[in-house]
Nucleic acid binder design. Structure first.
Lengths: 144, 144
DNA sequence: CATTAAAATAGGAACAATTACTATATGCCA
DNA sequence: TGGCATATAGTAATTGTTCCTATTTTAATG
């Protein structure tokens, strides 16, 4: 195991203890699989990758475990407005505020962000079409 | 109809003609519903809202129509990585590049964005937990 | 106005991602 | 090591979205 990963694993174990989470082979393997993955796998991909090691691992366990980890802030779900897609008519450039509680989406403008030059790394990556900032948090109505 | 909306509707009709899209009551109503909606409705919500006016409107039509409009850039899907949720272990602050073709997600860092002060509007909204920039485009591998 | 070919729709079935249910198995504390 | 709360496997159910196809509608033409 790479030292960084070892460290990560140690803090994972600690985090589990601190939160009264039982350490199970499934949890350990799911966490390690994700920690060592260079990509951003889906629950199904993680399931597939672990099947040779844990042949009885159920997809449900992967989903449940990932949800638990996300709640503990050990992992994050990458940029998703959960479940249903939402639409808007295309207007001026704007960004989005999303409340983690009520899921309401509010537009806001931030010209400063729109105009700022992209880092070199991004230019190398390919051709940029859209740039969208999403801010997550808790809105006033939900006690934020 | 509010003058702005009238204008919007006119350009909608024009856009349809320009792209060889037939003007149907369903398309008109779906577009207007979305143009006048203050929120960011889902396909299902739009369907519900139109049922009293178009009792036979099918959900499939709403989905198909929204997809068509999105292709024409008349509307946009709000911030979603389509279909499956993707996960990553929580590490340093970073943002995401998503290729519209291969869907690959690449991390990049942009400390400038992380450190910049939030606009007043956002502070009024509530408590911010995360700030994530998502850049869409086409990566080199996909000819971008 | 009718005629007509191409395109759009309704309705229901299919599909894919995710979550719920429940009996069994397991981690962990005493 | 025993007991109990918690986690898991397996499967069923749910939800969001797309596919299929017969029927209807649009818009172009005479």
């Amino acid at each position: 195991m790479h030292p960084t990963q070892q460290l990560r694993f140690a803090s994972f174990k600690e985090a589990c203890r601190g939160k009264n989470l039982r350490l199970t082979p499934q949890r350990i393997d799911i966490f390690n699989e994700l920690a060592n993955a260079g990509d951003h796998p889906t629950a199904e991909i993680i399931h597939q990758r672990l099947l040779s090691k844990l042949p009885t691992l159920s997809l449900d366990t992967v989903y449940r475990t990932l949800a638990t980890f996300a709640r503990l802030d050990l992992i994050s779900k990458v940029e998703t407005v959960q479940s249903q897609a939402r639409y808007e008519v295309t207007v001026e450039r704007h960004h989005h505020l999303i409340c983690e509680n009520c899921q309401e989406i509010v537009d806001f403008q931030w010209p400063q962000i729109d105009e700022i030059a992209l880092p070199e790394e991004v230019k190398q990556w390919g051709k940029v079409k859209k740039k969208n900032l999403v801010i997550y948090g808790r809105c006033r109505k939900c006690g934020g």
